[in-house]
Amino acid sequence: MAGIAQVTQGGPKTFTPADNEVIKGGQLVEARSGGRIGVAAAASTKVLGVALTDAVAPEDFPAADGTDALGRTVVSMVPVPTTVAVAYGGTEVKVTYSANASFGDKLVATTAGTVAPAGATPDARTIVGVCTEPAGVVVATKAVGLMRIA
Rank of each mutant, 00 (worst) to 15 (best):
A2T: 12
G3W: 08
G3Q: 14
A5V: 14
Q6G: 12
Q9E: 12
Q9F: 13
T14E: 15
F15I: 09
A18I: 01
A18D: 15
A18K: 13
N20F: 11
E21R: 12
V22E: 08
V22L: 13
G26Y: 11
G26T: 06
G26R: 08
Q27K: 07
L28S: 09
L28Q: 08
E30T: 03
A31Q: 11
A31F: 03
S33F: 02
S33W: 02
G34S: 12
G35E: 08
R36Q: 13
V39G: 00
V39S: 07
A41T: 13
A41Q: 11
K46Y: 03
V47D: 07
L48Q: 07
L48W: 00
G49T: 08
G49H: 03
A51Q: 05
L52S: 00
D54N: 15
A57Q: 04
A57M: 04
A57V: 05
P62Y: 12
L70I: 07
G71H: 00
R72T: 06
T73G: 06
V74K: 07
V75S: 13
S76Q: 10
M77I: 08
M77V: 10
V78F: 15
P79S: 12
A85F: 00
A85E: 14
Y88D: 11
V93Y: 00
V93S: 04
V93K: 07
K94V: 06
V95L: 06
Y97P: 01
Y97S: 01
Y97D: 05
A99Q: 10
N100V: 03
A101L: 02
S102G: 10
F103K: 00
D105P: 03
K106A: 15
K106M: 10
V108H: 02
A109M: 07
V115F: 07
V115C: 07
A118V: 01
A120P: 02
T121Q: 09
T121K: 10
P122C: 08
P122R: 06
G129K: 00
C131E: 03
T132Q: 08
G136S: 05
V139Q: 03
A140L: 11
K142D: 15
A150D: 11
A150V: 10
